[in-house]
Amino acid sequence: MATQINKQLGDNIFLTTLDAAASWARANSLWPMPFATACCGIELMSTAASRHDLSRFGSEVMRFTPRQCDLMIVAGRVVMKMIPVLQRIWMQMPEPKWCISMGACACSGGVFDTYAVVQGIDRFIPVDVYVPGCPPRPEQLIRAIMDLQDKIKKTGTYNAREFQLRILPDGPKRFDEDELMRIRERNGLKLDDHKYDPIH
């Protein structure tokens, strides 16, 4: 029996786990959602354009609707008025999803330590890969995508391991909540009555 199959199929069979196969497929066909707000967005464009050609890495299918995407690239600073939009788009993306924070501004506020700029998007949404630089070179972004692919290949789907991981307190910690409370109290601001609810 076994020899029969062997004869028919020859070397054309590979054995692997379903997890690995699914992760491999996912990692190499990322559909990014370019959340390009500022200068980093232009570098994101040049990464996708002729010279650097992101499609060599299987993630050039930029889709502008969150429903079709599994990777959000936040390129540029996110400010007070934009963060509810960002959160809403993040919530609209289907699982499994990943996020790359591109540029100093998205990671930490960068040079803009001002009243309007959110000091790092990881305070408000989860982030998988951080890319430093102002703006990062296209090569750096490509490297980040490769790193993300490595990360994706480590998760699986058969036993829904990635969803388990999502509940574990991994990844970036929440923004120091004591500090947050202090700032809010000092200024008489309450979270409960904020005016812009991102999810509804």
């Binding site: 707000t37 500022a38 200068c39 540029g76 600073r77 400010v79 007070m80 008025k81 934009m82 939009v85 040079v111 803009f112 001002t114 009243y115 309007a116 700029v117």
Partner: peptide, 24 residues
């Protein structure tokens, strides 16, 4: 949606330093 306080920063940075901000 991208108001980041450039002009406020102009008041704390000197004429040479602010050039990094106007770039953006």
């Amino acid at each position: 949606f991208l108001h980041s306080g450039f002009e406020k920063l102009a008041e704390v940075l000197d004429y040479n330093q602010y050039v990094t901000i106007v770039d953006r």
